[in-house]
Every structure is written in structure tokens, then in C-alpha cells.
Computed example of a mutant assay.
Amino acid sequence: MRFGGHETFPVREGWLYNGLALLRDHPDRQADPFVADHLGVGRNMAKSIWHWLKVTRLVDVVREGQTSRLVVSDIGRCILKNDPYLLETGTWWALHANIATQTAHAVVWGWFFNEFAVDRFDRTLCLEQLVRKLQMVGARMPSRNTLSRDVQCLLQSYARPIPAEAEDPEDANESPFRDLGLMVHHRDTGTFSVQRGIKDIPPEIFGYIASLADPATGEQARNRIAMKDVLSAPRMPGRVLSLSGDALATLFQDAETTLGSSVLTVRAMGGERVVELYPFRPTAWLERLYRRVSSQ
């Protein structure tokens, strides 16, 4: 279980593209002591970029004896090919899913989106619930300051302030994850609210998340998942996307219309509602997303 690594910086506009492009075009520079200059950021920000590339699964870590290096992953190559500047909303939903379904890295992110069940809270409550959870499972406990920095970074990444803060348009400090509409920060009370209503989520993202939880082998005709698990099981769409039951049902109706029942459908089976998904691999779901968006 790993904590920290982000150097207190949420993802910023352009960071992931810059890191991916450097690894693609000049992979040898990642070991350069002046790599921060190549990325156009400070040294701690460069460390943060490598961290976010890893936890968003855009890169793989390859071990070579006592050392390791980063290489662009299959998901990273798919995004570089289809949306290199990360302009599509669907790309950011996929990156969010990559973080929220982590089990070893970005532990606080995985806990928040899959287990934290409080819809309105302040930072202190969030931190106390996290500490209690780690104590319950007997996990290696990092310092409280480390956990506090993780919670703060998560909230800064996702929570859009209400009312909006006056910002310099030249200052690109805001994280693109805020645009997903998963959380708001009520500045007057200092509290945060998880938004569980309908969101602008491409239907392919449902299949993408399911494929991350249970990667397809290509041997079965369909994947069947009970709707109750889709809604509430860890690392499933309902949890990862912060959706209520009604919001999930509405979005699935739209998804079935958009994708076609041969790819995704909801049916009654054995007295319960079941989602049937074609077992594409994660990159195949992304390719379908980009093809559909480019044809519109």
C-alpha cells in the first residue's frame, strides 16, 4: 500500500501529455538529472508528473536488475494515438477510473471512491474515517501528516469551489479532474459534497471500468454483472463514478441506445437485473469511444 508521491500537487493541465511525450520521444531523458528542465517544471513537480503517470496507468514500471524505468503502457499509447493532448472528457473519465480502481497505489483515492460513504463532510471527518479504516484492516500506518496531505490533494483535485474562486487565467493550477463534476467545495462552510446525480459520462466508460476490474480474455461471449454489484461493489461503475441508483439506471438506458444491445444490455435474469457487456479489453473500449466521438 503506497501513500504520497504526488509532492502535494494535483494533476495540472498539460502535465500528463508532457510526460508521455517525453517518454515516447526521448525515453533516455527520464534518468537525466535535469529532466525537470525538459518537462518545463520544478524538480518536485517533475516527481509529481512521474507519480501521476504511474497511478493513472499511462505508464508501466519495468524492472531491470536493481533499477527500473518507465515505459508508455498500452493505455498510454492508445491515448497518445487518439487524444494526445487529453482534450476529450472521456479520456479524463478513463484516467479517473484508473486511479479509483487502484489497489496498491493511490490508496487514499481507492478508499475514498470505493468505501467512503459520507456524501457531505469536512476534511477532518474524511481524515478520521481514513485513519479508522487503516487501523481496522491492520495496514501499515504512514504518518498522519502524510495521510492529511493525501486527503488534501484528493480534495483539491476533484472539488470545484462554490462560489468560484477568482483565478488568474494565466495560472493553470486547476486540475482537469474538477471538470468531471464528482465533488464540490462549499467555501462558506468549508464542507465538501459528493455529487451522485447524472453526469456527462461516455457509455464506453462503463465497459472500461468493468474491464479494469475483470480484464477480458476474449474467450467468453459476454460478461454478466448483477446490477446491485454494478451499483455498489468496489471498483465497479456505481462507486467509481459516484452514481445513485437512479442516475446509474438512466445512464445505462442511454448507454444501451448508444452502444447497441449486442455490446451492452440490461435484462432480468433469475429474479434480478443483470448487465451484460461484451468483454472488450480496456484499450478496446477506449478505441470504441474515440471512434464514436470522431464520427460525430
Rank of each mutant, 00 (worst) to 15 (best):
H186R: 07
F177Q: 01
D246V: 10
G138S: 07
Q220V: 14
D171H: 10
P234K: 07
L231I: 06
T189Q: 06
M136Q: 15
N173K: 09
V137W: 13
A249H: 14
D246F: 08
A226H: 10
K133T: 15
T250C: 09
E174V: 09
E219L: 14
P215T: 04
L248V: 08
Y208T: 01
A247R: 13
Q135D: 14
V194K: 04
F177N: 00
H185E: 10
L231V: 04
Y208F: 15
K228D: 02
A247I: 07
T217E: 00
A139P: 10
G138I: 06
V184P: 06
M136V: 11
R149Y: 13
A166N: 11
D179H: 11
D188R: 15
D188G: 15
N173C: 04
R160C: 05
F252Q: 03
K199F: 07
S193E: 13
G197H: 08
Q253P: 03
L155I: 03
I205V: 03
E256W: 13
K199G: 02
P142L: 05
P203I: 03
Y208C: 02
D254N: 10
G218K: 13
T217H: 01
N145L: 12
P203V: 05
T258W: 07
L182Q: 00
V230R: 02
L147H: 02
T146M: 14
M227G: 01
E170R: 12
T258E: 10
L248G: 03
